[in-house]
């Protein structure tokens, strides 16, 4: 049990980071703070992927330019796995793009309701429905 944890210690910490992000999303009613929590959650997923791809004793997956040009690459060289790097690289840029869409929604909500706390929003919606007589 302890050995399982010791060999996967970084995954355990990344799970805790994910829990921190999830807690920040649920425990606050402020929409901006929720998006911050969401981005902490997102970063923990990135960290999970990247730490899976780590190989001990490995180098970043970039060849030496001269070795490549003269066809003298060391066949026994160890590199970390490049595939998760590619997936996460694009995910980060898409992540900031979606974050900005979320923030734009929050700005619109603030303009329409004058608040970004979710219980105030729920009350405003409720009184609006009462006025309509639903």
């Amino acid at each position: 049990m302890l050995e399982v944890l010791a060999e996967r210690f970084n995954y355990a910490v990344i799970i805790v980071l994910m829990m921190v992000g999830l807690y920040a999303v649920i425990a606050t009613g402020n929409l901006v703070k929720r998006l911050v929590g969401l981005s902490i959650f997102q970063t923990s997923v990135f960290l999970l992927y990247i730490s899976v791809s780590k190989v001990f004793g490995g180098a970043p997956p970039i060849f030496d330019y001269k070795d490549l040009a003269y066809d003298k690459l060391d066949p026994n060289a160890i590199y970390s796995n490049p595939l998760p790097h590619v997936l996460i690289l694009t995910a980060i840029v898409v992540g900031v793009a979606t974050l900005s869409v979320g923030l734009a929604l929050v700005v619109r909500i603030r303009e329409a309701y004058g608040s970004i706390e979710d219980d105030t929003l729920a009350e405003a919606d409720y009184s609006l429905e009462l006025e309509k007589g639903v």
């Binding site: 990247i50 780590k54 980060i92 923030l103």
Partner: peptide, 21 residues
Amino acid sequence: LDAVDVGFTEAAVGAGISTVL
């Protein structure tokens, strides 16, 4: 963790643009 490209992107995007936004 040897992911230099990802580190670069995260530093530029996460610490730069998303903080500004």
